[in-house]
Every structure is written in structure tokens, then in C-alpha cells.
């Protein structure tokens, strides 16, 4: 490929090649804090023209790589960065086998993590971004990687993909404009703008954390908290995992171990502020519970 870069996020190494310079330049900027050494990648992604002419005339970016979806529609070159991000997600979702992968976000405090999972639009990205600016360590907004041997989370702190209304709310939250990527309008998911995690979260991305609380957030509903039992958590997480079936027995062990070891709640909230406040409240209750248990022991 004419242009390329290598990026390491958590335990995964990507090599991204492109027919055009712009998406690679944008990636280098967005991933400025990440290791970029040229090593053997886990995955290769290619952003390529749909035809020779399409490289220059109304250029269209098609995604190719180790794993692809046959019907993926090409994106205009202005959304090349999004194409690269989507392609990296696809490689992880379809190809990663070292961890149990959950489509979820996560933040941690004092080495113990909150996992937040839900369908697209449930607010897990925005909540993790918000908490990452308010004293929590940001572990990832797209995938949570559970080590099947230890049950720990391997952080995967990619730049946060902010969508539509959450862009403005995070622009108000973050003073530093250089942490934002370009605004991409009219994408298949609406308007998208990436936010670079704080540099310290990237520096610490090799440090694993222990899951402590599992949340199923739903944005845009009247405030409500409901306890979720182990069996329901298990079913919901098998649906949220992209590689549960592929991992076989290791996946079963990892997932049953996870749902038996953490408290789980479904939370409904009307806006980001309320969501962040609910997470804080459940976290402090969790701390009290753990304290009680330690005292009883």
C-alpha cells in the first residue's frame, strides 16, 4: 500500500495501509500517544479504492483486511478515518481469540472496574468518556477484553467514538481541543467525532484490572435501577460477546466466572449527568458491600 502505519492498542497490534495519505495522517494524529513501532501485527487493515478511477474521482474507501464483511458499503474519503476505525473493530470482533470479547465499555478506580454493556445508542461510550474525565481510568468504549485464565480485564482504550448529541456534551467537558479528531458528518451512524483518551490511560494500558460491577445502561429513559441476576447477565453477555462461541469451553468458563463474581444492575437514565451520578452511587454502594464482606470475614 502507498501509505501505512502501525498502531498498538492494549494487547492488539494493527497495521493499517491506505491508498490515500489523509486517513493515515488522521490516524497518526488520533493515535499520537500510542506505540507505533513496526512489529508483526495481529491484524492488517487496508483502505483501498473501489476502482483505479475511484482513487482520484469522488474517492470511495473500501475496507479490506484479514477479516471483512462481504456487503460492507464503501465510505467517502472524508470518512476514511471512520473506515479505519470500523475495520479495526471488525478485525477484533471476528479475529481476536486471546480474550473473551464483550461489546462494552469500561472504567476503573483503584484497580476495580465497572463494565457497561448495551446496544448501540444505549450510552455506554458516552458514559465511559464522561467518567474518564471525572477521576475514573478509561479502559475502552467498544470492547472489554476478559482474560479467560485470570478473569481480569485487559484495557483496550481506543479513541472514543462520540456520536451526535454526545459530541457537544463532551466538547463542554474536555477543555483541550487537540484531543478531538475531525468532525465527520452524514456517516451511517450520523455525525461522529473521536476523542483521544487522556495520555495517562494510554500509558497504563498494559495494566490489567479486576471486574467489580456490571451495568446494563439505557440512555433516554426515566431514572430506574434494577438488579440483574446471574442467569440474565449471562444470557445478555453471551449476546454482547463477539467470540463467546468461538472460544468454546474457555469462553464458558470466563463468562460464568464473570457473572458469578460481580454485582449486576440495569440502569435507565435521562442524560449523561444522571447516568454518571447513578454509576457513582452504585459504585459507592458496592464499596460499602465489599467493606461489609471484609468486616464479616
Amino acid at each position: 500500500m502507498r501509505h501505512s502505519c502501525s498502531i498498538a492498542v492494549g494487547p492488539a497490534r494493527f497495521r493499517i495501509g491506505s491508498d490515500w495519505r489523509a486517513p493515515i495522517d488522521q490516524l497518526r494524529q488520533l493515535y499520537a500517544d500510542y506505540p507505533m513501532e513496526q512489529s508483526v501485527p495481529d491484524f492488517t487493515v487496508r483502505l483501498q479504492a473501489t476502482s483505479v478511477l475511484r482513487r482520484v474521482i469522488r474517492p470511495q474507501v473500501a475496507i479490506a483486511g484479514d477479516f471483512t464483511l462481504p456487503d460492507a458499503a464503501p465510505l467517502p474519503l472524508e470518512q476514511g478515518l471512520l473506515a479505519a476505525e470500523m475495520a479495526m473493530n471488525l478485525q477484533m470482533a471476528l479475529g481476536w481469540r486471546r480474550h473473551l470479547l464483550l461489546h462494552a465499555s469500561a472504567v476503573s478506580r483503584n484497580g476495580r472496574a465497572v463494565i457497561m454493556t448495551g446496544v448501540s445508542g444505549a450510552g455506554k461510550s458516552t458514559l465511559s468518556a464522561l467518567l474518564g474525565e471525572r477521576g475514573w481510568r478509561f479502559l475502552g468504549d467498544e470492547f472489554v477484553l476478559i482474560d479467560p485464565d485470570t478473569g481480569n480485564i485487559a484495557p483496550f482504550p481506543r479513541p472514543i467514538s462520540l456520536k451526535n448529541e454526545s459530541i457537544a456534551s463532551m466538547e463542554r467537558e474536555v477543555d483541550d481541543d487537540t484531543r478531538f479528531g475531525p468532525v465527520m458528518h452524514d456517516t451511517p451512524k450520523g455525525t461522529i467525532r473521536h476523542l483521544r483518551p487522556r495520555a495517562e490511560w494510554v500509558e497504563q494500558m498494559a495494566r490489567e484490572t479486576r471486574p467489580a460491577l456490571l451495568l446494563f445502561p439505557r440512555f433516554g429513559y426515566a431514572r430506574a435501577v434494577r438488579r440483574v441476576d446471574e442467569a440474565e447477565s449471562f444470557v445478555r453477555l453471551t449476546q454482547a460477546s463477539t467470540n463467546y462461541v468461538a472460544l468454546g469451553e474457555r469462553g464458558f468458563d470466563a463468562l460464568t466466572g464473570l457473572v458469578r463474581s460481580v454485582r449486576a444492575c440495569a440502569i435507565d437514565y435521562a442524560d449523561g449527568e444522571e447516568g454518571a451520578e447513578l454509576v457513582e452511587r452504585l459504585w459507592s454502594e458496592q464499596g460499602t458491600r465489599l467493606g461489609d464482606r471484609a468486616a464479616a470475614a
Partner: peptide
């Protein structure tokens, strides 16, 4: 079979088929 109690239910992993039952 691998059997794990999850609250009032039981998750069973059937090793020959790789299928999980609840």
C-alpha cells in the same frame, strides 16, 4: 458436561457440541 449454577438456573456447557444450555 460442565455445569455452573447461576442463581436459580444452571448453565451447562456440552463439550462434544460446544453448545451452551441454560
Amino acid at each position: 458436561l460442565k455445569r455452573v449454577t447461576l442463581g436459580g438456573l444452571e448453565a451447562i456447557y456440552h463439550l462434544p457440541s460446544g453448545i451452551t444450555h441454560l
